[in-house]
């Protein structure tokens, strides 16, 4: 009788385990398949890429597609453009956003947080028409700076959003002690709160970096031939080479490689940072 109950429990635990493994597999399958197919397209010759039925495991693997991406377009220039745009937009967002978030969190100015939500609600395109006109007047069209400036519309709210969450959960006794010892608000921020919030700053910076790197629309409107960012460059390849699937997939990989690597490096912090900011 007791034996029977134990086997029953054992079977039940096994069923639970199998069910869990199955559901994890089902959840991951679409994700894995799309990435697998992207890599597969990028290392196959065109003859394999346009074969029917599709070739899943090619007999011959090639890296010509990657070579083609760099030969036929100034990909390194576009990479450098993206680095300039994303780098400066992230840096400025940190310089402005971290103190701003500190102020909002300490003053409990939740109305300001509502303004942030408003900026997330605004379609990015709606900034573009007035800004396009403004940049034309200023003669900045044709340089990377309009793109970098508009990318701050993306990076700044992310940094502020993540950092408010961080500063609010920080214990405030240390800063209060500093204030009692005669530190100004700025000093309390600079020497106490800021060093403590380094993990939050890293998450905010990387999430801002990823969103800016991935952004297409601002670059699409403001970029000329020599100021394209990576996503714009890839989109343009699509319009000109409809059937060269290998180079297209290779270009897609080149564009997303930096953000994929960043995600792998700090995945745990991303999950924590996003869910901490989520309740605000």
């Amino acid at each position: 009788m007791g034996m029977n109950l134990r086997t029953k429990r054992k079977i039940r635990r096994l069923v639970d385990k199998v069910a869990l493994a199955l559901s994890v597999a089902v959840l991951l399958a679409p994700c894995l398949f799309v990435f697998f197919w992207m890599v597969s397209l990028s290392v196959k010759y065109d003859i394999d890429n346009t074969a029917w039925p599709p070739v899943f495991w090619p007999e011959q693997v090639t890296f010509d597609n990657f070579a083609k991406v760099f030969d036929e377009s100034p990909m390194l220039l576009y990479f450098w453009n993206s680095v300039q745009v994303t780098g400066s937009a992230t840096l400025v967002a940190l310089l402005l956003g971290v103190p701003a978030a500190y102020g909002i969190a300490k003053a409990r100015a939740h109305k300001m947080a509502a303004v942030l939500l408003l900026s997330r609600m605004t379609p990015g395109l709606s900034y573009l028409i007035p800004l396009f006109t403004l940049f034309q007047v200023l003669g900045l069209i044709g340089t990377v700076w309009p793109i970098a400036l508009t990318h701050m519309v993306i990076t700044l709210p992310i940094v502020v959003w993540i950092m408010i969450g961080f500063f609010e959960t920080q214990p405030h006794e240390l800063e209060e002690a500093a204030r009692i010892d005669g530190a100004t608000l700025w000093q309390a921020f600079r020497y106490v709160a800021l060093p403590l919030s380094r993990p939050g700053i890293v998450v905010g910076a990387i999430l801002a970096f990823i969103s800016s790197w991935n952004n297409f629309i601002f670059g699409a409107v403001f970029a000329g031939r020599t100021t394209r960012t990576m996503p714009v460059a890839v989109y343009n390849m699509l319009t000109f080479e409809s059937f060269a699937w290998g180079p297209l997939a290779a270009a897609a990989i080149v564009v997303m490689l930096p953000v994929i690597l960043l995600t792998i490096v700090i995945q745990r912090e991303i999950v924590q940072g996003l869910s901490a900011g989520g309740v605000k």
């Binding site: 994890v24 959840l27 991951l28 994700c31 894995l32 799309v34 990435f35 197919w37 992207m38 397209l41 990823i210 790197w213 991935n214 297409f216 990576m230 996503p231 890839v234 989109y235 699509l238 699937w245 297209l248 997939a249 270009a251 897609a252 990989i253 564009v255 997303m256 953000v259 994929i260 960043l262 995600t263 792998i264 995945q267 991303i270 999950v271």
Partner: peptide, 23 residues
Amino acid sequence: FRTIFIMPMMATPVAVSLIWTMM
């Protein structure tokens, strides 16, 4: 597994769209 699962939201949407277009 969770890292793999969150990969899509980090990938560049335009590049992802390109792959889907081919699929």
